[in-house]
Nucleic acid binder design. Structure first.
Lengths: 216, 216
DNA sequence: TTTAATTACCCTACGCTGTAGGGAGTTACG
DNA sequence: CGTAACTCCCTACAGCGTAGGGTAATTAAA
């Protein structure tokens, strides 16, 4: 698991990649671009999950060797960062904002939710890493704008959009889990309960969780 | 990255481990116990993060070889699951609950928050996996009990505690990130802004995010 | 135009990971 | 007692991220 973090590579290199800055260089013409690599990586992650994304696999997809990618990307951690930011960039911000702050926030939350469901790996990447890229910054800015001018302090505004984002993420996590449970275990819900139900009933009877059992 | 999921091992084995069921067996006396292994794994994860936890490393700590662990644990994914549930079991539930539902929920959220800060790896593990173990079930039950009897439907009760848990997780994520940023990058905040600030300013000027810049 | 510098790409290799397979020794049950 | 079951170890495999070095290509400088 790429649990590691950035910071090892050249900062300028990473930021250029994040923000799509192109600099003139001297050597032979590159056969790829950072954008191509990130796009291909996102495709793989969408299709096969984050676990299916390796540097070799990605390089194969692009017709190069694994080590060639390191000319475009400082390392895998940074690639994941940029992937996440690019995905967030898919959110289309409303040109003409809705009239009420509630409608504005709801529209953004809806888009955020849709995004997380179509790129479930975002939940894993951003589990412990924020990032200052154009995609995430744009969403953050739009959310703040939605509650701007209501007389709230900046801190309260930040608290509100954080709460909303956290809830969207949590709800998406549940939805993704529910959607993928069958694929992962290879069982239908019914099969699962037939297998685990009796075993769980055995232990749940001893230590009683009255309300949880009722609601669950 | 252990992005993989459970389901491969014997379900009974996993559930027994989760719930601490001991069955009489035939062979030689085991030199370890599942609890010992989980406890050692949690210690390593606390000290060195989830990235520092490998089966070999854990086995070394316990004085056995890596493959010996597989007699106690079906695989690493299941070990992580049980670690998470055990950690959640650390939450001490209030024997005499507070008088208002708000105070009850706040107390639980406070404990949840403290737990996540002392075991930051929980945020990574539970990024996409819920689990029906005693620890998490106990917290879930306590949270539901806190809002029970207020005339809410079961569904609303579940929604409320989910929202609260999601927010706690999100806030803890921010706090952990803030606390660990310096360790990971090896920079103080000031150094970080001196390095990245000019680069960011360069790109932020072109695409303007007025509100985000002001609040940030 | 020639020359020197810089870059892209490939190949090889290292240390790491989770874990499958099989053998040797230990314990409890029939 | 014999045998089945169990624990532990050793070896090994395929895969991972990525460091190092060599060669060909291209462009900036002379």
């Amino acid at each position: 698991m790429p649990t590691e973090y950035s910071g090892t590579g050249d900062p300028r290199r990473t930021i250029d990649l994040l923000w799509g800055v192109h600099r003139r260089r001297r050597g032979p013409r590159p056969s790829l671009s950072g954008e191509q690599i990130v796009a291909a990586a996102i495709q793989i992650a969408d299709r096969e999950g984050l676990g299916g994304l390796s540097m070799r696999r990605l390089a194969d997809e692009l017709g190069v060797t694994a080590m060639s990618l390191y000319g475009y990307v400082p390392g895998k951690a940074e690639l994941l960062d940029v992937m996440a930011d690019r995905a967030y960039g898919e959110i289309t911000l409303p040109g003409v904002p809705a009239t009420t702050w509630r409608a504005r926030l709801a529209a953004l939350a809806q888009q955020h939710w849709t995004l997380l469901l179509s790129h479930p790996w975002l939940l894993q990447i951003s589990a412990s890493r924020p990032l200052l890229g154009p995609g995430m910054t744009a969403l953050y800015d739009a959310e703040l704008t939605a509650v701007d001018g209501l007389g709230l302090t900046d801190i309260d505004m930040d608290l509100i959009v954080s709460l909303l984002d956290d809830y969207v993420r949590g709800a998406a996590r549940g939805a993704v889990e529910a959607a993928g449970a069958q694929d992962r275990t290879g069982m239908t819900d019914q099969q699962w309960w037939e297998t685990y139900g009796p075993l769980l009933a055995e232990v749940l009877n001893q230590a009683s969780y009255p309300v949880a059992v009722r609601v669950g």
